[in-house]
Every structure is written in structure tokens, then in C-alpha cells.
Design a protein around this nucleic acid. Structure first.
Length: 263
DNA sequence: TTAAAGGATCGTCAAGCTAG
DNA sequence: CTAGCTTGACGATCCTTTAA
């Protein structure tokens, strides 16, 4: 690929999601938007690529972007760290942590600003996520204490129309959800405290509750992850378009220059 | 048609993070 | 400090694709 910024680097997913592809006129001004906190990850030896107009200086941490307007934009350069760079005597656990731990999607998308993932379990911002949810029929349910009935209104979740409590007993109940033509059931355990029970039973109930919550949390987490990945894919597409436009612009300017030279 | 391979999804555990 | 939330990892299961 003969791209400029992307040739040797990857665009950081944390960068705010871009506006629609820049017009040529504006893209000539700056590859990196002044108000965007972009991070460009590059190969080690990427040389300055433009001699005039925009200069992108990379290759060393804490580099700076200098624009024609004379304004300086701090650039955080993330040095690619391969697995090899981790010391060998690092314990497997620590090593694993170093490799895997990353900011939460909520944090990332909060940083993104516009691309915030819906907070809470029943909000949804992206229509794609909507379709995904419907196509996978992910049960968007809410844990409620036994004995209580929660009616979900329109904004309470995508397509949850009716809720009915069945089989309500002292120990718990089955909550029945109807979503479109589908129905699904969720066992709900009575919240501890209201019932006197032997310790073991209480423990087991607590565990059930914890597992249920974690199950839902995992679902939610996976949904966020998918949405986040879609965000990234969209961003890649936009940046590729920008890149293409810039290449075309460069080409036409070159042609113009050559033409004028021969005249 | 069927078995194998590979991918997707799920539930669970564990550890980090955060709000109160 | 603690309870609850979030998320990577892992194993199990299901689903789809592909070759025989």
C-alpha cells in the first residue's frame, strides 16, 4: 500500500472517531486534525514524509507535530512492544497481565467522546448493535428481586414487551420475557436478607446470584466489545478513504506541477 | 452423507478497577 | 476498605464449512 500515514503504522483505536471523510481542501491542511488526540503508531524508522505543508515527525517518543500554521501539536508515540521485549525472567502471570490488561471499553469509549457505548444494560445507541441483538436474540433482561414485577417501557430495552413472573416461590421465581415472537425464561433467585435460611443454603443462593449477574455482565461485555470492534472497523474505513483522497490529491498536484514546469 | 476442522458463543473464574 | 462491576482467559458446546 502506498499510503502515507498508514503505510507503516496503525492508527490508534483510541483516537476520537473521525468526522466524515475530509474534503480535499481541508485535508490538505493537516493529516492529523488539530482537535483530535490522535496517536499514530509507526514502524521505528519511518522518516518524515512531507517536506512542506504538514510535517509529521515520528520515530521518537514525545515527538511533536508541526503544522504550517506554526502550532505545535503534542504527539504521543507508542512504541510497538513485541513479546520479545518482555524480559524472560518475568513470571508467566505478570507477563500475561502485561500482555492482556487494557482499559475497559467504557473508558475507551468515554475517551472517544462521540462513540460512547451505552451505559447500563438496556440502552443501545448503535443501530448495528440493534440489528445484531435482534439477530442473535440476546436476552436483554434485568434482574429483579423475586416478588417484584418490573415493566419495561419503550426505552427500557430493545423490544422487551412483556414481563411476567411465574412460579413465584420463597426461593425465587422464573421471569418470562416476551420479545417479538420469542419468549425466554430467566430464573431469578430471591435476594438474600428477607429469608431466614441455613448458612449453606444462603451461600448457595448468593453464589447463584453472583453467577447470574456475571453471566449477564459477560454478555454485556461481549456486546460492548463487538460494538467497539465495529467502531474500529468504521474508523479504518474512514481513514482508508482519507488516505486514498490524499494520495489522489498528491497525484493531481504533482501532475499540475509537472505541467506548469513544461509550459 | 458424514466426519473433521475451524469459528462463534456461552458460562465461569479470577483479577483489576471504581464508587461509596 | 469493600462490594460490585468489568473484562481477559479458558474450556465446553454449538454451528458452519469443507473434503472425502
Amino acid at each position: 500500500m502506498e499510503g502515507m500515514v498508514e503505510e507503516n503504522g496503525t492508527v490508534d483505536p483510541l483516537a476520537p472517531s473521525p468526522d466524515p471523510p475530509l474534503s480535499i481542501a481541508s485535508s490538505v491542511q493537516s493529516v492529523i486534525q488539530p482537535n483530535q488526540q490522535s496517536v499514530i503508531q509507526t514502524a521505528a524508522n519511518l522518516q518524515p514524509m512531507l517536506s512542506k505543508g504538514n510535517v509529521i515527525l515520528v520515530g521518537k517518543p514525545n515527538s511533536v507535530i508541526q503544522t504550517t500554521q506554526g502550532s505545535l501539536q503534542a504527539l504521543q508515540v507508542v512504541e510497538a512492544q513485541s513479546d520479545d521485549s518482555l524480559s524472560e525472567d518475568e513470571s508467566p502471570k505478570k507477563r500475561r497481565d502485561l500482555l492482556t490488561r487494557r482499559p475497559s471499553y467504557r473508558k475507551i469509549l468515554n475517551d472517544l467522546g462521540g462513540g460512547e457505548i451505552a451505559e447500563g444494560k438496556v440502552e443501545q445507541t448503535s443501530s448495528e448493535a440493534d440489528s445484531e441483538l435482534s439477530s442473535h436474540s440476546i436476552p436483554y433482561h434485568t434482574v429483579i428481586p423475586a416478588g417484584a414485577i418490573q415493566i419495561s417501557s419503550g426505552d427500557g430495552g430493545p423490544g422487551i414487551h412483556t414481563l411476567t413472573m411465574t412460579n413465584s416461590t420463597a426461593g425465587g421465581a422464573i421471569v418470562q420475557y416476551a420479545q417479538g415472537g420469542q419468549e425466554f425464561f430467566v430464573p431469578v433467585v430471591a435476594q438474600s436478607g428477607g429469608l431466614s435460611s441455613p448458612g449453606g443454603e444462603d451461600q448457595a443462593r448468593k453464589r447463584e446470584m453472583r453467577l447470574l449477574k456475571n453471566r449477564e455482565a459477560a454478555r454485556e461485555c461481549r456486546r460492548k466489545k463487538k460494538e467497539y470492534i465495529k467502531c474500529l472497523e468504521n474508523r479504518v474505513a474512514v481513514l482508508e478513504n482519507q488516505n486514498k483522497a490524499l494520495i489522489d490529491e498528491l497525484k493531481s498536484l504533482k501532475e499540475l506541477y509537472c505541467q506548469q514546469k513544461t509550459d
